[in-house]
Design a protein around this nucleic acid. Structure first.
Length: 481
DNA sequence: TTTTGAGTTGTTCGA
DNA sequence: GTCGAACAACTCAAA
């Protein structure tokens, strides 16, 4: 064991709410004789939330509670504050007479600005600020082309990523090894009730979404048993085929290295594990894309697509948001996000394609709706996904890839099991018509109690017509700078 | 420098 | 019902 070089350090938790395999925490404990831990409920972020019932805030609050308990078990504990992080961190660092603040790197534009401000404030007090890679396997400048450039196409990025992967990248950071270096927390800084933060309980528990490290590990254990089937099962929203770990990835209640280790261990010869690992690589990919191309957060990754003049019909947008487009797969998917804050990945693609290429609405409207409503919302992945669907992003495939909502529905929800779960009005519609109920002859509509236009909306647009309109819309900007 | 091969998740049309 | 071609042409990354 090395001798600590610092006396007192502060470790700042952000999107890494766990006490195991935590790179920054490990380095803080290794470097300092005494480490205090803090989590700040940042007013900068919380005050901007209009809705006071927010599953994400509740999830964080729950996870922080479990984190505090885990740290106490290790001999430490958590200082919890409700403040502006930019001021609170330097202030706390001074209070505890810290020599340095340690944290894990956050790559989002707003986080980068916040951390710069904190670094500056700390520097003025002669306090160090050290950040570590923890959120990703490979960060911004690690996976580069042969001439040192950054990748903007996924497949070569993935190949280079896999080539670089070794035991070092996958190793765990055993926090418990330096447990003797945890400082005892001060009792007045204990976790406050959710109400004190200005928030209320949501239906998180009722939805079966459990917060914290223990819940994440339980999900992983369960998923690893199903991972062999992942490659095909992941596309069917009515099937339990995916890991459901996205929210834990968002808040770091499980280490990305732990997930990659699980996938990598099974990867050779296991198509499911390979496919899932590939999803983790996508996550790294979009993190580095946004870091190197920050303009993509607000505009098209390929600037020429900013020239598209979106019709942006507000009534159609409302129909999309409120799950009354008349396309069952779209409406069921939108009900899923509205009721649970989650949407199956296949459905995210289908509704995104529908919003941009059938309703001809700016992808940023949809991106914002997802940002407001997804429990697992992550700027880089959400932005990358929307730009992919809108054909304005990294994907080099042509813009005429337009999902047919009926075909997708038939392929990925063949018996309408998912549709019926969220649209009980369509319960009695035969499988043959569940994907396009407007095709039901009027007498049959009467018979199964679903009169189109009365019990379920007529389609707000005609796909074939809108497809051509989308092609024309994108075609207009073709070849222009 | 030039060339070559390829690009997450698709759809439609016509044989 | 199944299958291959067309959708059009560009950019990326490596050879």
């Amino acid at each position: 064991m090395t001798t600590p070089t610092l006396d007192i350090a502060l470790f700042w938790f952000r999107r890494d709410l766990r006490a195991t395999d935590n790179a920054g925490l490990f380095h803080a404990l290794k470097s300092a004789r005494q480490v205090h831990c803090v989590f700040v409920f940042d007013r900068e972020i919380l005050d901007a939330l209009a809705e006071k019932r927010d599953r994400r805030v509740e999830f964080i609050w729950e996870s922080v509670g479990e984190l505090d308990a885990a740290l106490k078990k290790l001999g430490g504990g958590l200082i919890v504050r409700h403040a502006h992080a930019v001021e609170a961190i330097p202030q706390l660092a001074l209070e505890i007479k810290a020599d340095a603040v340690f944290t894990n790197e956050d790559y989002e534009p707003q986080a980068i600005a916040r951390d710069l401000a904190v670094r500056d404030a700390l520097m003025r007090c002669d306090i160090g600020f050290h950040t570590f890679k923890d959120t990703v396997i490979f960060e911004k400048d690690e996976v580069l082309t042969q001439v040192g450039g950054t990748y903007s196409v996924f497949t070569p990025y993935k190949n280079a990523w896999l080539k670089m992967l070794d035991d070092f990248q996958l190793k765990s950071y055993p926090v418990e090894k330096y447990r003797a270096h945890f400082a005892k927390p001060v009792s007045k800084d204990a976790l406050m009730p959710l109400e004190t933060l200005g928030f209320e309980r949501t239906n998180l528990k009722a939805l079966g979404i459990d917060a914290g490290e223990s819940a994440a590990r339980k999900l992983l254990t369960d998923f690893v048993k199903r991972i062999d089937d992942y490659k095909t099962a992941r596309d069917f929203p009515a099937v339990k085929g995916v890991s459901y770990l996205s929210i834990h990835n968002r808040f770091g209640t499980i280490s990305i290295r732990e997930l990659a280790r699980a996938a990598h261990a099974k990867s050779p010869g296991n198509a499911g594990a390979q496919t899932w690992l590939s999803e983790l690589i996508w996550r790294d990919f979009y993190f580095q894309i946004l870091y190197h191309h920050p303009h993509a957060a607000k505009s098209a990754f390929r600037p020429e697509y900013d020239a598209i003049v979106w019709p942006n019909d507000e009534a159609l947008f409302s129909a999309w948001c409120e799950a009354r487009t008349g396309y069952p797969i779209i409406d069921a998917a939108m009900r899923q996000i509205n009721e649970t804050g989650y949407m199956h990945n296949r459905l995210r693609m289908i509704v995104a394609s529908f919003l941009t290429k059938d309703l001809l609405i700016d992808w940023r409207w949809g991106e914002q709706y997802f940002a407001d409503n997804l429990n697992d919302f992550d700027l880089s992945a959400n932005n990358g996904g929307w730009q992919w669907a809108a054909s304005t992003g990294c994907d080099a495939q042509p813009y005429f890839r337009i999902f047919n909502p009926v075909t997708q529905s038939e392929r990925f929800d063949p018996h309408g099991k998912f549709i019926r779960r969220y649209l009980p009005a369509l319960k009695a519609v035969p499988d043959k018509f569940i994907h396009a109920p407007w095709m039901l002859p009027p007498l049959d509509q009467q018979a199964c109690g679903v009169v189109i236009g009365r019990d379920y909306p007529a389609p707000v647009v005609d796909h074939a017509t809108q497809r051509l309109a989308a092609l024309a819309l994108y075609g207009k900007i073709k070849g222009k700078p």
